[in-house]
Every structure is written in structure tokens, then in C-alpha cells.
């Protein structure tokens, strides 16, 4: 009986040791004062995305409550082959490229960046800003990130066209890696 109690103590110590061990190697590198970039949205959004679905939304009809106000375009043209590569270097955005031969609803090549590096506290969808030049001075469009990659590497981008500031059509790109 005494022997069993001793064994229980021993196992308890052993368990404690295993729990502490993993942290022994995690000496904070910041201890020496050097800086590490925080995780930004670029890590989540950057990369090569393949189109899983695309829907066209009639914003005029939707605003007026008229149906149908949405159709699926995935089976049309060559949307099934569409890929969007959002290139990053050191987690900083550089260029992007759309491939696959689908209709060019926004320029197929250019440069990009987000309007925020971190999610907005109020839940506003971050935007991918598209530029024609590397200096990012000539803006050619923007895509709202309406669904952010999380546990699943899936993302939804929305391209909205407006006239005099009023949306009249939009395209919902469902993407996955």
C-alpha cells in the first residue's frame, strides 16, 4: 500500500516535468531586446488562391428587393481555371497576378496592399487595394475581404462596381488554397 502511494507521487513529479520541459526551450528572444514582427493579415491573405465559386450580384435589383438578384458564373467562360496569386516578400505585399483565362473583371496583373494590416475592431471588411505601379500610386481597383481565412484556408473577395458612388453590380469570389 505504501509502495503504491510512493509510485503516485513519482508519476506526479514526472508529469510536472513533462509539462515544464516544452517551455524550457522557449526562451523569449525578446529578452535580448530584438524585435519580432507581429502576425499581420498579409500572412493570412497572401499566397496563391484558386477560385471555388463566383457569383454576380445585381446590386440595383437587390436594393429594390427584386429577385433574382444573383447568378452563378462559375460554369461560364473559364472561371473554373481562375487563380489569384497575391505575392508577398517578408510578409509584405508586392505584386499580384490573375491567371486562367477568365473574363478580366479587374486588371489581371499589378500590385497590391491592404488598407489595414490588422483586422478592424468594428468588424469592417479589410480591402485589398490594387495598383498598376510598384510604387502604388495609381489605384486600379479594390476588393473587399468579406470572409477572412481562418481554420479553413478559404477566403471571399467582393468586387463592387459603382456609378456616381452607388453600387450597381458586384462579384463575389470564393477562393481556397
Amino acid at each position: 500500500m505504501e509502495c503504491m502511494i510512493k509510485n503516485e507521487y513519482f508519476l506526479g513529479y514526472l508529469l510536472l516535468l513533462f509539462m515544464i520541459l516544452p517551455f524550457s526551450g522557449c526562451e523569449p528572444v525578446t529578452d535580448d531586446g530584438s524585435y519580432v514582427d507581429p502576425i499581420t493579415l498579409y500572412e493570412k491573405i497572401g499566397g496563391n488562391w484558386k477560385l471555388a465559386d463566383i457569383r454576380q450580384v445585381d446590386e440595383t435589383a437587390k436594393a429594390a428587393g427584386i429577385s433574382p438578384n444573383e447568378i452563378d458564373l462559375y460554369a461560364q467562360f473559364s472561371f473554373g481555371n481562375l487563380s489569384i496569386e497575391l505575392k508577398t516578400e517578408n510578409n509584405r505585399p508586392v505584386s499580384y497576378q490573375v491567371t486562367g483565362g477568365a473574363p478580366e473583371l479587374f486588371p489581371n496583373t499589378g500590385f497590391w496592399q491592404l488598407d489595414t494590416e490588422f483586422p478592424f475592431a468594428n468588424g469592417t471588411a479589410p480591402k485589398i487595394l490594387l495598383y498598376s505601379d510598384a510604387a502604388k500610386t495609381v489605384k486600379t481597383g479594390e476588393l473587399s475581404v468579406t470572409s477572412m481565412p481562418g481554420a479553413k484556408t478559404e477566403m471571399e473577395l467582393k468586387l463592387t462596381r459603382t456609378t456616381k458612388g452607388v453600387p450597381f453590380v458586384s462579384y463575389m469570389y470564393s477562393l481556397k488554397k
Binding site: 454576380q56 445585381d58 447568378i71 461560364q76 456609378t163 450597381f168 453590380v169
Partner: peptide, 13 residues
């Protein structure tokens, strides 16, 4: 015709 309003950049169905 879909969508109700369409620009030259769009797909008309």
C-alpha cells in the same frame, strides 16, 4: 437581361 445595370467591364447575361 442580368444585371439591371451593366458597364462595359461586366458580364451581361
Amino acid at each position: 437581361l442580368f444585371p439591371t445595370n451593366v458597364s462595359k467591364f461586366d458580364i451581361l447575361t
